[in-house]
Design a protein around this nucleic acid. Structure first.
Length: 419
RNA sequence: GUGGCUGUAGCUCAGUUGGCAGAGCACCGGGUUGUGGUCCCGGGUGUCGUGGGUUCAAAUCCCAUCAGUCACCCCA
């Protein structure tokens, strides 16, 4: 077998299922457009160092999951493992911070991580990413979180929850981190976990293995060690969320795998997906802009997985039949009719009537079958007899009623019938 | 990266103690040359994931490998 297949951990999205993909993408971005977020397109690859510094050297994403390569000019480039770093790079490079703040941006696109594939986890996946940059205002945190919830709600999802916590900032996290490390040092952990505790102790809190989780019940929590500023910020965020009617679950052990998060941190978790249950997640990041050579401004945003959201919709039985591709279908009989029929096809499309044609020299029976399967409401049968009279047979495929219509009026007639 | 399970037609799957590759659905053609959905007739569309091994004989047993899947890890 020498045939090609999609690379490991990747998949194709084909019609008719791809219609649901587009619908999800549009539903998740519509709330952003209504809230004044502007679309950004950035390269699929960036300087490797951008991710190393932006996402964090200690993260799994950077240390073992990146698709990195050297181009012919000797540059080290990496296929983006997430969208935030590229968005921040563009924000800084084009000095968007010099204008009115916050700068509200969103992006949609492919991401790549070299991971072991699993349900809901792929090496190529698509995210919607949004960022509100340059302002540190709890009300903005609330807007961002609420927009994420709205996207899922508009799709009809109900079996998901918003998990929320605060990760503190440069004032309080270092002390807490030390306290946590002391606590972890007293536990019975395997070597791999010990190493994780040394590099990023917060990550250990998230461990799902029962023998580890059991030891963590009395672990010190970041939310109990917030400095006054972070505490006030978190209180205000929650007050705004209550005001907006957004429900959340306090999740003090929630940790994000990317290093840049501070203060408000959250995840959208769906309950019908198995292990890969996060359909979206994000938070505030105080130091990212500065870390990447920009001004010392804060930002907040989230990323939502389109593929996982699609799985969530499927889990809730919310994916219906895709709409018909065309509304009219032209069936020609004979060579002269084929030529006139092709022009008719163009006339229909010029009237904004999605239309298709019986290609492939099908028999009348086969052509009618094709018309039926296309989902079209109307079939237009065009034979020599009709042609001689300057008409075509317009057949309503739902009622089987058929009548002759002058060819010159046909496209307009179909358009009117459909409107 | 670690561990478990699974790979047979486009899809869902059956295939007995090793003995000529099957079903349903889908698809294609036809039912006297101008009408679809229902019905009838016909058609298998396949490197049994791949490569080795055992055997007179392998979809079936063994090894390797690739892929999928589930959990860990990680995360969207």
């Amino acid at each position: 077998m020498t045939g090609f297949t999609a690379p490991k951990g990747t998949f194709d999205t084909l019609p008719p299922d791809s219609a649901a993909f587009l619908a999800v993408r549009d539903a998740l971005t519509a709330p952003l457009r209504r809230a004044g977020y502007g679309y950004v397109e950035t390269p699929v690859f960036e300087d490797t160092a951008l991710f190393a510094r932006g996402v964090g050297e200690s993260t799994d994403v950077v240390s073992k999951e990146m698709y990195t390569f050297t181009d012919r000019g000797g540059r080290s480039l990496t296929l983006r493992p997430e969208l935030t770093a590229g968005l921040m790079r563009a924000f800084i490079e084009h000095k968007l911070y010099a204008g009115q703040l916050p700068v509200k941006l969103y992006a949609v696109g492919s991401n790549f991580r070299y991971e072991r594939p699993q349900a809901g986890r792929y090496r190529h996946f698509t995210q919607v990413d949004m960022e509100a940059l340059g302002v540190d205002d709890p009300a903005l945190d609330a807007e961002v979180v609420a927009l994420g919830v709205e996207g899922f709600r508009k799709l009809g999802l109900t079996n998901f929850e918003l998990q929320l916590t605060s990760l503190g900032d440069a004032n309080c996290r270092p002390q807490y981190r030390e306290k946590l490390q002391e606590f972890l040092a007293g536990l019975d952990l395997d070597e791999e976990t010990r190493r994780r505790a040394a590099i990023n102790p917060l990550r250990v809190l998230d461990d799902k293995r029962p023998e580890v989780a059991a030891q963590l019940t009395d672990a010190p929590l970041m939310v109990d060690h917030l400095c006054d500023g972070c505490q006030q910020h978190y209180d205000e965020v929650r007050e705004h969320l209550r005001n907006l009617g957004v429900h959340w679950i306090e999740t003090p052990k929630l940790v994000r795998g990317l290093d840049y998060y501070t203060k408000t941190t959250y995840e959208f978790v769906h309950n019908g997906l198995g292990a890969q249950s996060a359909i979206g997640g994000g938070g505030r990041y105080d130091g990212l802009s500065k870390e990447l050579g920009g001004p010392d401004v804060s930002g907040i945003g989230y990323a939502v997985g389109i593929d996982r959201t699609l799985l969530a919709l499927r889990a809730e039985g919310l994916i219906g039949e895709p709409p018909a591709k065309v509304r009219a279908f032209v069936v020609p009989l004979g060579d002269e009719a084929r030529r006139r029929g092709m022009r008719l096809l163009t006339e229909l499309r010029d009237e904004d009537v999605p239309a298709d044609f019986a290609f492939g020299g099908k028999s009348l029976k086969g052509a009618m079958k094709a018309a039926d399967r296309s989902g079209a409401r109307y079939a237009i049968v065009l034979g020599e007899r009709d042609l001689a009279e300057g008409t075509a047979q317009l057949k309503d495929l739902t009622t089987a009623e058929q009548r002759a219509v002058p060819l010159t009026d046909l496209a307009r007639t179909v358009k009117e019938l459909l409107s």
